[in-house]
Write a protein that binds this DNA or RNA. Structure first.
Lengths: 229, 229
DNA sequence: TTCATGTCGACTGTCGACAATTTCTTGACA
DNA sequence: TGTCAAGAAATTGTCGACAGTCGACATGAA
């Protein structure tokens, strides 16, 4: 697909800014549960730990804020976002809306090749869907399927929203500490979605999405509510 | 600490941080067309003009970036976002998705009082829907109806997305320089939505939303494409 | 001319310091 | 013992300065 005549033997040299590196570090730490929801993100200590000044840390925190992982309180600083069961429920409702809309577009106009990519991702997902594999790995394989499906819809707006929702979802599941159901079962409920997309069946796609995400919504929010006391 | 009788309507600026004030100023300037899409937002000159340092300006710009009004290029700075016709089309597609979903929830569970508020807003909209009134005022009255309807859905996520889309929509319409149709007609196409919500008719609500926003989408993107050459 | 290279100016990226605000501590007092 | 206020400590908000990077223009060779 690339390098027709330009033998650019050098990779574009990752010149991520300092801000992006800090943001990735913090984001990872949050999603992996190293930083618990509600805990303070002190600019000073992070800056000292990373050997930078506070300015990049601050910008990174603002970035994470717009990603929904961090909450900002004026004159008080940044905190790892604490998501309520209600917010989680709203989040899943939005996911259903977005993914249903994306699936309809996929049914209508996505090329067959894109759907093949989804099938491959389900295989990947099934491959990691065993109790031995790290939970985060499983969840990310799951999310990757949804990400690809939404990308196949062709509307980058859908993808942008999903990326944010996915991060917050991961955060919540990490808080719960385990997946919301049997890994194998979770992987298999993706199959009806794929079949509906293949068959170009709008109604079936809508139903499959609503069932798949709806079940996750039900199970996750339920477990989440028990944690809230 | 605080004044018990402080007239909060006179001191909204003093309480907001400097960053928010700068962000509002810049956002207004962009939406009002004082800053044309593609033009550079130089941190230095803005800071000098406002009598602050660059730090608050930078943070404000990042805020506007997550609002979609400003684009950021590493090592080059901030620019007023230049929206393509394709992006505008995607934006409207998302608006249809979100507002349809919100309308369904309103039909299902919104209290009657909320719908009354929508009716009142349509009256306000009709009041300003004359050629003499400022275009931005008309558009904001229009957007306010949608904002209230989505707020009535009870899912703050829908509102958050809409607020961003609304700003970008305003930006695009300002670029076009005039409304996309007869003001009176625009105001009146809100009525079927209201009636469907009142009647608690899901299908009618969906159709009314799709027609209303779909027409705007068609007209706006069409006019926008002619500007792109 | 046309392309590559060198130089310059303007801007952003990062920094350390100080001011403003919040939070914690402490001790007086009922 | 509990409450509250004043001060201390810690943290955020803002600032001015300097270094790093990018784009534009000039210079020179093919």
């Amino acid at each position: 697909m690339d390098k027709p005549d330009s033998p650019s033997q050098f990779a574009p040299l990752g010149r991520d800014g300092l801000v992006d590196r800090v943001a990735n570090l913090l984001g990872e730490a949050i999603i992996r549960g190293k930083l618990k929801p509600g805990s303070r993100l002190s600019e000073s200590v992070i800056a000292r730990d990373l050997g930078t000044s506070r300015a990049p840390v601050r910008e990174a925190a603002r970035l994470l804020e717009s990603s929904g992982l961090v909450a900002y309180q004026p004159n008080r600083g940044f905190f790892v976002r604490k998501i309520s069961a209600q917010e989680l429920d709203d989040l899943y409702e939005l996911r259903i809306v977005i993914e249903t809309a994306a699936a309809l577009r996929v049914v209508r106009e996505a090329p067959e090749a894109a759907i093949d990519g989804l099938a491959a991702q389900i295989e990947t997902l099934r491959g990691v869907s065993t109790p031995e594999v790290d939970m985060l790995t499983q969840m990310e394989a799951d999310m990757e399927f949804h990400r690809r499906m939404i990308a196949a819809s062709g509307n980058p707006r859908f993808s942008a929203i999903f990326d944010q929702l996915a991060k917050e979802t991961e955060l919540c599941v990490m808080v719960i500490g385990r997946l919301y159901g049997d890994p194998r079962w979770i992987a298999d409920t993706h199959l009806p979605i794929l079949e509906a997309l293949r068959a170009r069946d709008e109604t079936a796609a809508k139903d499959a999405i609503e069932y798949h995400i709806g079940e996750a919504r039900r199970l996750v929010t339920q477990q989440f509510r028990t944690l809230e006391e």
